[in-house]
C-alpha cells in the first residue's frame, strides 16, 4: 500500500469515526446524569439534518443550522419533561424501553412531517465535486468541517465539565445524584440540561455530516447501534473517551476494508467489541471501580 493510500484510508476512517462519535457523545452525557441509555439519540442526528435542510430554504446556512440545533435541543428538553421526568421512579430498564419508544415516535413523526425522500444539506464550502489534496490523499472539504466541529465539541465539553459550575454540577449528579441534591444542585434541571445538550450536539452532528451522508427519516436506528457500540467501547460515562473509541472503530473498519471484502466490515467491528468487553468489561478507557458502582 502506498503512503497516499494509507492516508486515504485514515481519512475515510476518521470521517466515519467522527459520525459515530457524535452519537456516542450524546449517549454519554445523558448516561452521566440519569444512568440510562437514550436510544433516541440517532433520531436527534436525523432531526438536525432534516430541520436545517428545511430552514436552509428560507435563510442562509449558518442561521439555519443554529436554529435547527436550538429546535432539536428544545425537543430534547421537552422529551425529558414529558416522558423521562415522570418515569424516573421506574427502573432503569423501563426508562431505556421508553427511549426506544420515543425513537419510534420521532421517526414516524419525521416520516409524517417530511416524507420518505432522502435529503442532503448543501456543502459548507465548495460543492459535491470539490476535493482537497492533502499529501496525495483527496478528501471533500466537508470532511475538514466534520473534523473541525468534532474537535470544537470535544474541547468545549472538556472545558464545560472541568471549569464551569454547571458542568461540575452535572458531573456531581453522575457521581452521586442524592449527594448532589443534598449539596443544593437541582438534579431535575441537570437532567433536563443533559437532554438538551445531547440533542443539540446530535443535531449539530446531523447538520455537519448531512452533505456527506445525506439525511433520511429512518437513519437514526443504524446510527444508534453504531454509536452504542462506540459508547461501550470507550467506557460508558466518558464523552471524550467516546470520541477516541469512535475514531478507533472508524479506522479499524476502514483498514479492514483494505484487506478483506467490505461485507465483513461489521463482523470485524463486532468481534473487536466482544474481545474488548471480555478482556476489559469497563471499556477501553473506563475504570473498573467506577463501572462497578453503576446501574449498568
Amino acid at each position: 500500500m502506498s503512503p497516499e493510500q494509507i492516508l486515504q484510508y485514515i481519512f475515510a476512517g476518521i470521517t466515519v469515526g467522527s459520525i459515530y462519535a457524535f452519537v456516542a457523545i450524546g449517549y454519554n452525557i445523558i448516561y452521566n446524569t440519569t444512568g440510562i441509555i437514550n436510544f433516541a439519540q440517532g433520531e436527534f442526528v436525523m432531526l438536525g439534518g432534516m430541520i436545517s435542510f428545511t430552514l436552509s430554504k428560507f435563510m442562509p446556512l449558518l442561521p439555519a443550522i443554529i436554529l435547527a440545533v436550538l429546535i432539536t435541543a428544545a425537543i430534547g428538553g421537552l422529551i425529558e419533561i414529558v416522558f423521562i421526568r415522570r418515569m424516573r421512579k421506574s427502573s432503569v430498564l423501563g426508562m431505556v424501553v421508553v427511549t426506544i419508544g420515543i425513537s419510534i415516535l420521532l421517526r414516524e413523526a419525521a416520516l409524517y412531517i417530511w416524507d420518505e425522500q432522502i435529503r442532503a444539506l448543501s456543502f459548507f464550502t465548495g460543492t459535491e465535486i470539490s476535493s482537497v489534496n492533502i499529501l496525495g490523499a483527496r478528501i471533500s472539504p466537508q470532511v475538514l468541517w466534520v473534523l473541525g466541529v468534532t474537535s470544537i465539541i470535544v474541547g468545549g465539553l472538556y472545558l464545560f465539565f472541568k471549569f464551569t459550575l454547571t458542568g461540575q454540577a452535572m458531573r456531581a449528579c453522575s457521581e452521586n445524584s442524592r449527594a448532589a441534591k443534598l449539596c443544593g444542585i437541582k438534579t431535575d434541571s441537570m437532567v433536563n440540561l443533559s437532554f438538551m445538550l445531547s440533542a443539540g450536539i446530535g443535531a449539530l452532528g446531523g447538520c455537519v455530516v448531512s452533505p456527506l451522508t445525506q439525511t433520511h427519516y429512518a437513519m437514526g436506528t443504524d446510527l444508534a447501534i453504531k454509536g452504542f457500540i462506540v459508547a461501550i467501547l470507550g467506557g460508558l460515562g466518558n464523552p471524550i473517551a467516546a470520541v477516541a473509541a469512535g475514531l478507533i472503530l472508524g479506522l479499524l473498519e476502514s483498514f479492514s476494508i483494505s484487506i478483506l471484502p467490505m461485507a465483513y466490515k461489521d463482523v470485524i467491528s463486532v468481534i473487536i467489541l466482544l474481545i474488548i468487553l471480555v478482556v476489559k468489561p469497563s471499556g477501553l478507557f473506563g475504570s473498573k471501580q467506577a463501572s462497578s458502582l453503576k446501574d449498568f
Binding site: 493510500q5 484510508y9 481519512f11 475515510a12 466515519v16 437513519m219 476494508i257 471484502p261 467490505m262 461485507a263
Partner: peptide, 20 residues
C-alpha cells in the same frame, strides 16, 4: 467486486480500494 451495507453512509474507503 464488492458488497457494502445498504445503509452505508460513507464509501470512500471502499472506493479507495477500487481506485488502487
Amino acid at each position: 467486486a464488492e458488497t457494502y451495507d445498504k445503509a452505508a453512509t460513507d464509501l470512500t474507503a471502499l472506493l479507495t480500494k477500487l481506485k488502487a
